[in-house]
Amino acid sequence: MSSTRNKLIKILSEKKGEYISGQELSEKLQVSRSAIWKHMNELKKDGYIIEGVAKKGYRIISAPKTVTENTIMWGLETKWLGKNVIHRDSIESTQTLAHQLALDGAKHGTIVVANEQTKARGRVSRKWYSPKGKIIAMSMILRPDILPYLAPQLTLLTATVLANVLDEHCGIKPQIKWPNDILINGKKVAGILTEMQAEQDKVLYVIIGIGMNINQTENEIAEEIRNRATSLFIETKVEWEIVPIIQKILEQFEKKYDAYLIEGFKDVKETWENYGFKINERLKIKTAKETFEAIFRGIGEDGALLAEKSDGSVEKIYSAEIAWF
């Protein structure tokens, strides 16, 4: 990726359709006007529609809406996340490819993103129908220098990032179902699958997979899950551009992750509880040992679900099947 081209696209985007002269561009970018012309042609190849008018200069008519390596990286304001993007038009699962890349030594912050997944993975092989161009399917490769037992907190952190982006960028308030499902009006709009390879006291890598339903219509959600799943389009009646949402997720994630490594889980906990689904309500918890009803009292300092039992005692739950009634 040429950094000149990156800057060029940024300047053009900031002009929001106004003309900018070739002279001004060449001064700002410190390259010749013929170099600018070459970069413009490259952008056109990527689907940008650019108008060049004599004496006025250049302006962007439209940027490509499709997700590609270039469209994600252009204008992405991060320091380390998404600096290396692997994009596939169609893939079995971004998570599987991310594992292979991580084992081959992919750098911290590498992301794998696809327009379509043919074998989307949830845990327990739950199927996720992900039609082309209507979803976000992305996996992030991280190499955090933390102890393995702390890593589950990253799944809650990721959930708060998605919730924040939906809230601030899309203007709709989501809820987080413990530990990390994202709901809108009680239906699931996004899921997170986090996988880790670790030694006893060292994380080798963590892969955080994010799947989000964006532009599916009701008919494009599998019938058997229609009462439990939704898309951003169904909830907002707006067709969303996917690239900016991905960029917001990456930018927010980087900020939150960096802050978490320094300051710990406290902020994440606060944000999480702000979006928490059914806090102070009854739920039924099934662990390997027992099944019991409890009141959901928010999350602990480490992200565990706090379940208040009928005798008033509070149990920390790290792993269980939960019936949310």
């Binding site: 845990r123 393995p148 890593a151 589950p152 907190q153 990253l154 799944t155 809650l156 530990p179 990390n180 997170i192 699958l193 986090t194 996988e195 880790m196 390879q197 670790a198 030694e199 006893q200 963590v206 992200g303 565990a304 790290y318 792993s319």
Partner: peptide, 17 residues
């Protein structure tokens, strides 16, 4: 990899070491 331990939907693949 000998097993997985899951907590808060993080799946930890444990190596034998």
């Amino acid at each position: 990899v000998v097993c997985i331990v899951e907590a808060m939907k993080l799946f930890n693949e444990i190596e034998a070491e």
